[in-house]
Amino acid sequence: MTTAPIPVFDGHNDVLLRLYNNGGDDAAIQSFLTGGAGGHLDLPRAREGGFAGGMFAIFPPSPAMENFMDLMQGEGYDLPLPDALELSDGQKSTLAMASILFRLERASEGAVAVCRSVADIRAAMARGALATVLHIEGAEAIDADLVMLDVLHAAGLRSIGPVWSRPNIFGHGVPMRFPSSPDTGPGLTHVGFDLVRACNRLGILIDLSHLNEKGFWEVARTSNAPLVATHSNVHAICPVSRNLTDAQYEAIRASGGVVGLNYATAFLRPDGHMDAATGLDVMIRHLDAMLERLGETGVALGSDYDGAVVPEGVADVSLLPRLIEAMQAHGYGDALIRRIASENWLDVLDRTWSPR
């Protein structure tokens, strides 16, 4: 008898961007539901690998944006970032990707659920539906008066990264730079502080993954919620600007927060390269370091599927059992693996989503 895979609730994927770039039409919707259209994530492969759900990111792309991942090679790099995105462009793509998620739910006939509470997530997982949470990576759709924030929250938005790596009206992200500390410039703007306080009031998780170090500490001083980075790794192992320093980990632990392991190989490998020929051992090395810094209740998974080059061993969601097996072989017990795979996310979401 085949044992069912341990369910994984994941902190970050970019499948909505992939579907948007593929036209965002009914054919794109069906490609997710029936499989066979490439990428890292679709419904059949999610079921095969025990991918039970996660935060489904909306990332508003810049016009004519280069594939920067191809440039993350060599002894070092410092990639130019796109200019700030216009509000109208951010709103157009953000609303289109939100629509894709809602249409996925309708077309799936119960196989996909948009979840607005932890009770919704647990109920979806219990009945075998894919539990999706609306998340934004880069708040370019939100105006300075935060009117759109209320609208998106009412629609189901429960997690937001104020910035991607390019600057916007809320703050400054980290560039794609190796080697580099995350201390790369100015942090939040005055509107960024307003956004943090508004997210606290509404019970929206604030994702710190792309925010630079100054912005991180400004959120830490302003927010009354657990500090969370949905898809980041350990700077002491891979000194890329996107990873977190030990001091940042200490603050996250003190707040009762969580960090999701990012599978992007440039944020795993000590050489900072985007290279699929990367072993699962380096993922375990980061998990060990995260457990040492955060404890067993602070470590989760944040794959960045469909948004990065990932190790061949976990080349799509159907292969997630290989990561679980690597944890088992390394000596992680079943209870710890279940915490990392899903329970730590559900716990921190439960503590964050109550308005404050």
Rank of each mutant, 00 (worst) to 15 (best):
L336Q: 13
L320S: 04
D306E: 10
A315C: 10
Y332P: 15
D304V: 00
P311W: 15
D316F: 06
A315K: 14
A315I: 13
D304C: 02
R322C: 03
R322Q: 12
D316Y: 08
H330D: 15
S318Q: 12
P321V: 09
P321W: 14
V317L: 02
G333E: 14
M327L: 12
A308G: 12
D316L: 08
A329W: 13
A329I: 09
I337T: 02
I337K: 03
Y305E: 02
V309I: 12
V314D: 10
P311K: 09
Y332Q: 08
Y305M: 00
D304E: 13
M327I: 05
E325M: 08
M327D: 13
V314W: 15
M327E: 09
I337C: 00
L323T: 04
D304S: 01
R338T: 05
G331H: 07
E325P: 03
P311S: 10
A335Q: 15
D306T: 10
D334L: 05
A335H: 12
A335K: 10
G333P: 14
L323M: 10
I337S: 01
I324G: 03
I337W: 14
V317A: 03
A335V: 11
Y332C: 00
M327W: 12
L320K: 01
Y305D: 02
P311G: 06
I324A: 00
M327S: 01
M327A: 02
E325V: 04
A308Y: 05
R322I: 09
A329F: 11
G333C: 04
L323N: 07
R322K: 11
S318R: 05
I324S: 00
L320T: 06
R338Q: 15
Y305F: 08
A308C: 11
G313D: 14
D306L: 00
R338P: 05
D304K: 00
E325L: 01
D334H: 08
L319A: 08
A326E: 13
S318V: 07
D304M: 01
A335E: 15
L323P: 06
L320Q: 07
H330I: 11
D306R: 00
Q328H: 14
Q328M: 01
V310F: 05
M327N: 06
G307C: 08
D304R: 02
R338K: 15
D304G: 07
L320N: 09
Y332R: 05
L336I: 09
P321A: 09
L320Y: 12
A329S: 10
V310T: 05
V317F: 08
L319W: 13
G333H: 13
A315M: 13
V309F: 11
D306Y: 07
A315N: 14
V314G: 00
D316V: 04
P321D: 15
H330L: 06
L336M: 08
V317H: 04
L323G: 03
L336N: 06
G333Q: 12
G333R: 03
L336C: 01
P321N: 12
R338G: 02
Y305K: 00
G331A: 06
